[in-house]
Design a binder for these strands. Structure first.
Lengths: 195, 195
DNA sequence: TTGACAAGAACGAATGTTCGTTCTATTACT
DNA sequence: AGTAATAGAACGAACATTCGTTCTTGTCAA
């Protein structure tokens, strides 16, 4: 009986397909990855893939919404754990750095891919819920006087722009070593930009 | 006599093709733009396009290298006009903002497109000469004591990361009005991040 | 225990279309 | 006359997707 949680098992065709697609999409790009490429790399049949996903686009859409949801959950956790804008924003940046190190493909797909090109129905990433929540954190910081009285857009950009760009550099292979070695210095810069 | 400078004349098929391709590539993406789309939009024939460019990839490559060169020239001008790291970097950011307002497609293609996906032989943008020059400016600022003693990568990212992200937001349609309205505040944030 | 049956999952050859490119013909210029 | 430019029909490879089939697993009657 029971034991219903076998769904992330990897031997599951659906998960295997998702994992493989994510890897190929980020490595070669959505349009340079054919369904046959995914089939070969994942060692599953075309039929199987189409049994689990209605189309290539839906496959990419699944990846995208999963990732957005994970990121939203991650931010919720931060909100629950920390109370000040400073601590919250710092924790979000830290989480992004950590994720970029441990799951580069996931972060690359979320931050660097141009989803609008292959998911015409999705909003741009920067309008997605997680990014809205980041802006709300900054707004709270301004209201409480933690962050000086700037245009919220500018403050948000000043805080997250540097770290996000650093992540992009890392994911583009322009940076040696782990991202972590830059975290403290980077955060100090970002915070002092808005205080 | 001679009058050799007719090359940006617009009635010239080659330029017209380039202009149109840039517009379509940035609007719909390289892979969602067919040669027939360009042909229709520019009112030229397939034969003409292939007379001027050997392939779709070479067409995109022309756009890219032209743009990189323009940006390099722009930075050279800044280097000639200003002497301090502060003034130079500020001028580069100002030029980027200005260009993003007046030629959004050009900046979108340069900063936001994922060239590696359709120009497999090009280096990543962030390794191109203009971006190298930006890093050199920052290094000079550190050496001269204008910028405090940070890891050069972090300092560069702290300075340019915010502004570049702001430009990306604007080009993604997430920002109202002109970029200029944010320039002073944004620059103040960036500079105070590294001093 | 066995055999019949059902249903979801996996399979992969075949299909129809799209797209970049080539080819041949025609026109403009010098 | 000869070269550069334009034209658009035709080509062939690559692609996403379909569909009829096979495999696997579980259920239930005898």
């Amino acid at each position: 009986m029971g034991n219903a949680q076998v769904k992330d098992t990897f031997s599951d065709t659906r998960s295997l397909t998702l994992e493989t697609a994510l890897r190929l999409f980020t490595a070669k790009g959505y349009f340079n990855t054919s369904m046959q490429d995914i089939r070969k790399e994942a060692n599953v049949s075309i039929g199987s893939i189409y049994h689990h996903f209605n189309s290539k686009e839906e496959l990419a859409g699944s990846l995208y919404t999963d990732l957005v949801q994970r990121m939203e959950a991650l931010i919720q956790d931060v909100l629950a754990e920390y109370g000040t804008a400073h601590d919250r924003i710092r924790a979000v940046v830290a989480a992004l750095f950590q994720m970029a190190d441990s799951e580069p493909d996931a972060v690359r797909f979320l931050l660097c891919a141009k989803h609008r090109e292959f998911l015409p129905c999705e909003k741009p990433v920067c309008s997605s819920r997680p990014f809205e929540m980041m802006r709300e954190m900054v707004q709270m910081g301004i209201d409480r006087g933690e962050i000086c009285d700037l245009d919220p857009v500018v403050a948000t950009t000043a805080l997250f722009g540097g770290p996000i760009r650093l992540i992009q550099l890392k994911l583009d292979g322009a940076l040696e070593g782990s991202l972590w070695q830059y975290f403290d210095e980077m955060w100090a810069c970002s915070w002092s930009a808005v205080t």
